[in-house]
């Protein structure tokens, strides 16, 4: 089938078999190596991307379902230098080790950070932990990730919401 996708701002029409997972299509057709597959059954969050702005598991989505939709992946979030404030916080708080789960966490949590900043409120630890409960990290024990979310929200609250 023919599918038109806007991926990280660029629109392209491709021909794919209907069973191809969005994760595979992003990786293979769009060369987006930041989309990782950790389980391919919806239980680890590694493959999280944004479809029309909201986090979605790209292993549970067929590319064919995304005709006309806009998709963004970790590659577009902060560029090759990973300059998004949440990425910077992952760096300073040691929110990653092997990095395999990292794009999924970042894509799941970036909107969470934005929403809390928009509300002007710092969530408690349990709320932060629940926001990432669909993502598994086997390396960090989550500690650095929780700290990174707290820092990303805190920094932006301190600066005002313009960031």
């Amino acid at each position: 089938m023919n599918v038109t996708l806007t991926v990280n701002g660029t629109q392209r029409t491709i021909t794919v078999e209907s069973r191809r997972l969005l994760a595979d299509v992003l990786r293979q057709e769009f060369n987006l190596s930041g989309v990782h597959i950790g389980c391919a059954h919806g239980a680890c969050g590694c493959c999280t991307v944004h479809v029309d702005g909201a986090p979605k598991l790209s292993c549970l989505t067929f590319a064919g379902q995304c005709d006309g939709k806009s998709i963004s992946t970790v590659e577009v979030l902060g560029g090759v230098e990973a300059e998004h404030p949440l990425q910077a916080a992952f760096r300073s708080e040691h929110g990653l080790q092997c990095g395999y789960c990292t794009p999924g966490f970042v894509m799941t949590l970036a909107p969470f950070v934005d929403d809390r900043v928009a509300e002007g409120r710092m969530p408690d630890d349990l709320e932060i932990r629940e926001a990432m409960s669909g993502n598994i990290c086997r390396c960090t024990g989550y500690h650095g990730i929780v700290a990174a979310v707290r820092k990303a929200i805190g920094d932006r609250l301190a600066k005002g919401t313009q960031a």
């Binding site: 919806g42 969050g45 999280t48 909201a54 986090p55 979605k56 598991l57 549970l60 799941t108 969470f112 629940e130 926001a131 409960s133 669909g134 993502n135």
Partner: peptide, 9 residues
């Protein structure tokens, strides 16, 4: 029910 991304879809 599940996790935020699951609940969203």
């Amino acid at each position: 029910i599940g996790h935020p991304t699951i609940r969203r879809h």
